[in-house]
């Protein structure tokens, strides 16, 4: 495993983080995990690595931060990249389904539309040419809008969302409802925070569990 590359992607991600602020408290720990993971498991060469069904969950990584008296347990069967991508939330709207892209009607550009332009390439529509019309009535050149919708299924102008592929929906719901079962690519992080204030009163450990999915 190229740990250097992983770290650079990690730091790249760190600077881009926006949705993971609630996890920022875990950063030093995750950073430690990254080091531990890349040092402990040189398994990207593993013939099973590319086969999700046969991939076995990586062993647990226990991290202890003596300064803040926090302990984190990271267990899961995923690589660092997918963990980071999941945390970074940079994906945006998933692609539109092929059916919904194909279903967009072609409309002819009449005199009345003369002078209007495609908001993607900023070129004017040719009178008597054709454009594709989205369900929200916004028009673009066919090539322009198809290229965008295969990346993100939303209208560039009004963010009207197009239907996504069935698989995409199934995948999402699995991710959401995965309580109790391990979805491939899931990493669990348990954090135990030693609570000094309560130490004298009895229970001296408060635990907080956070499950991250990629």
């Amino acid at each position: 495993m190229d740990s250097e590359a992983e770290f650079s992607s990690f730091f790249d991600w760190l600077t881009r983080r926006d949705r993971a602020r609630e996890l920022s408290v875990l950063m030093p720990l995750i950073l430690g995990a990254a080091a531990a993971a890349s040092a402990a498991t040189p398994d990207t060469e593993d013939p099973d690595a590319g086969n999700p069904e046969r991939r076995t969950p990586r062993e647990r990584i226990v991290l202890i931060d003596p300064f803040s008296q926090r302990v984190a347990v990271i267990e899961g069967g995923s690589d660092l990249d997918s963990l980071l991508q999941g945390l970074g939330g940079k994906d945006g709207q998933p692609p539109a389904s092929k059916a919904s892209i194909d279903a967009m009607p072609s409309v002819e550009i009449g005199e009345a539309d003369g002078g209007s332009e495609c908001a993607i390439c900023l070129e004017q529509f040719e009178v008597d040419g054709v454009a594709k019309e989205m369900p929200c009535n916004h028009r673009f050149h066919g090539g322009c809008i198809e290229q965008w919708l295969t990346l993100h299924g939303s209208c560039p102008v009004c963010r009207f969302t197009m239907p996504v592929e069935e698989e995409e929906v199934v995948k999402k719901s699995e991710e959401r409802g995965g309580e109790g079962r391990r979805v491939d690519g899931e990493i669990r992080v348990r954090v135990f925070v030693h609570n000094r204030r309560r130490a004298s009163e009895g229970p001296d450990q408060a635990s907080d569990e956070d499950t991250m999915q990629s």
Partner: peptide, 22 residues
């Protein structure tokens, strides 16, 4: 905005980008 690197945290420069933006 990062006081160190100048990196900007703004959704439209990330997942909320649209090609209709310039």
């Amino acid at each position: 905005i990062s006081s160190q690197s100048g990196a900007i945290c703004l959704d439209i420069l990330k997942d909320q980008w649209s090609p209709a933006l310039t």
